[in-house]
Design a protein around this nucleic acid. Structure first.
Lengths: 216, 216
DNA sequence: GTCTATAAACAGATAGAC
DNA sequence: GTCTATCTGTTTATAGAC
C-alpha cells in the first residue's frame, strides 16, 4: 500500500482515528474500525506505527495541536497596543473566524468532538490539548478584551468573561443537533452561520459596552 | 440483597450507570463495572431488570428526564404576562438557579456528562432527552425572553439568543477543567460560582438591553 | 512496511440452581 | 430476586512470513 499520495498511511490512520475517537469515543472505537476507515489498512499497522492504541490517541492529540496552529496562528505576544475601537473590531473578526470554523469546516466536527471527549476524561491527552492550544488562545483573547475595554487583561473578570464568549460560540458546535432541531433547520449552512453570527456580534458589543462603562 | 433501603437495587444500578456512562461513555463502561459500583450487585441483574445494556441506557435517560422535572418543574404554558422588568428578574433567577445546579450540585456532573455524550451520538436516547427536557425548557426561556425584550418569543433571533445564553452557563460545566486550570482555582466552590454569576448577569442585562433598544 | 495467524483477556447475554 | 457457571463473539497485542 505504498503509493504516491501526499497522505501517508500514517496520516490516513490518524485522520480516521480522530474522526472515530471523536464520534464514538476512545474505548468504543476498535483499531479494526480505524484500520478499515483509513482505507482498508491492516490492523497490525497501528501497533507498528504508534506502539499501542493509547499511543495512537496521543498522536491524534498532537496532530490536532499542530493543525490548529496551522489554521489559527498565535499572534505574537507583543502586540501593537491598538485603540479600543480597533481591538473591538479584532475581537469581532476573531469571533467570526472561530464561528465559521466551528460550524462550517467539516473537519472541525471531528476535532471538536475529540477535544470535547478528552476534556471530560481529564487524562494525559487533556494536558497536551490544554498546553498546546487552549491556554495560548485564551490568553490572546483576554489581551484583546483588555484592550477593548481598558481593563486588566488578566483579571478574573476578564478571564471569566472571555470564557463566557467562548461558551457562546462552542455551544453552536456542541449543541448543534439541539439547535438544528429546535430551529427546524436541516443543518447549519453558511446562511445559518451568518444568522448566528449576527446574534453573537450583537452580544459581543453589548457585553463590551457594559464593561467599558462599568469597569468593575 | 433485599433490604429496607428506600433505594431499591434497581435504582442503585441506574444511579451507578448514569455516573459511569457519563464519565466513561456508554461503550467504555461494562455491566460488570456498573454492578460493582452499584454496591457489588450481580452482573446478571442488568439483564434481569433492563433486558440488555441498551435497555439500561434508555432507563438512565428516562430517569434523568424524571429527575430534572423534579428539580426544575416546568412553568404552565399560560403565564401571567409580566412586565419587562419582572421578566428580566425572572430570567436572572433562572440563570442563577441553573448555574448553581450545574456547578454546585454533585449529581449534576453525572447528569450533564451523560446528556452531553448522548447529544453527540444522536441515537435513540437523544430523542428521549430532547423531548423530555430540552424542548420545554428552551421554549420557556424564549417566552420569558420575549416578555423581557418585547419581541416575538418564537422568532429565530430570540431562539438563537436563548441558546447563546445557555451556552454561557453550560460552558462552565462542560469546560470546567479548562476554567479551573486557567483561573488557577482548585475547583468551583460556592464563592467561585458567585464570581461567575456576576459575569453572567452582567452579560444578561447587557444583551437584553441591546435587543430592547434595537429589536431587529 | 505490510500481511496472516493467533494468543490471552474480556465483553454481553443466558441457562438454570436456589 | 439473586446467584454461579458458561457460551459465543470480539478485543488488543504480538509473532513471524514475505
Amino acid at each position: 500500500m505504498q503509493d504516491n499520495d501526499p497522505q501517508s498511511t500514517r496520516d490516513l490512520v490518524i485522520a480516521a482515528a480522530i474522526r472515530l475517537f471523536g464520534h464514538q469515543g476512545y474505548e468504543a472505537t476498535t483499531v479494526r474500525q480505524i484500520a478499515l476507515a483509513a482505507g482498508g489498512q491492516n490492523v497490525a499497522l497501528v501497533s507498528y506505527y504508534f506502539g499501542s492504541k493509547e499511543g495512537l490517541r496521543r498522536a491524534c492529540a498532537q496532530e490536532i495541536v499542530a493543525r490548529i496552529h496551522r489554521i489559527f496562528p498565535t499572534a505574537p505576544d507583543e502586540m501593537p497596543a491598538a485603540g479600543q475601537a480597533a481591538a473591538e473590531r479584532q475581537l469581532e473578526t476573531l469571533l467570526s473566524l472561530f464561528l465559521d470554523f466551528m460550524t462550517q469546516v467539516p473537519e472541525a466536527e471531528d476535532l471538536a468532538a475529540f477535544v470535547l471527549r478528552e476534556l471530560t476524561e481529564s487524562g494525559e491527552v487533556f494536558d497536551i490539548l490544554y498546553d498546546g492550544v487552549i491556554a495560548d488562545r485564551h490568553r490572546q483573547l483576554c489581551r484583546l478584551w483588555g484592550q477593548a475595554t481598558g481593563t486588566d487583561p488578566e483579571s478574573e473578570t476578564t478571564r471569566l468573561t472571555a470564557f463566557s464568549m467562548l461558551g457562546q460560540v462552542l455551544y453552536f458546535r456542541i449543541g448543534r443537533p439541539v439547535v438544528v432541531r429546535r430551529l427546524g433547520w436541516s443543518g447549519i449552512a453558511p446562511a445559518e452561520t451568518e444568522q448566528i453570527k449576527k446574534i453573537l456580534t450583537t452580544n459581543l458589543s453589548a457585553i463590551l459596552a457594559a464593561y467599558r462603562e462599568d469597569p468593575e
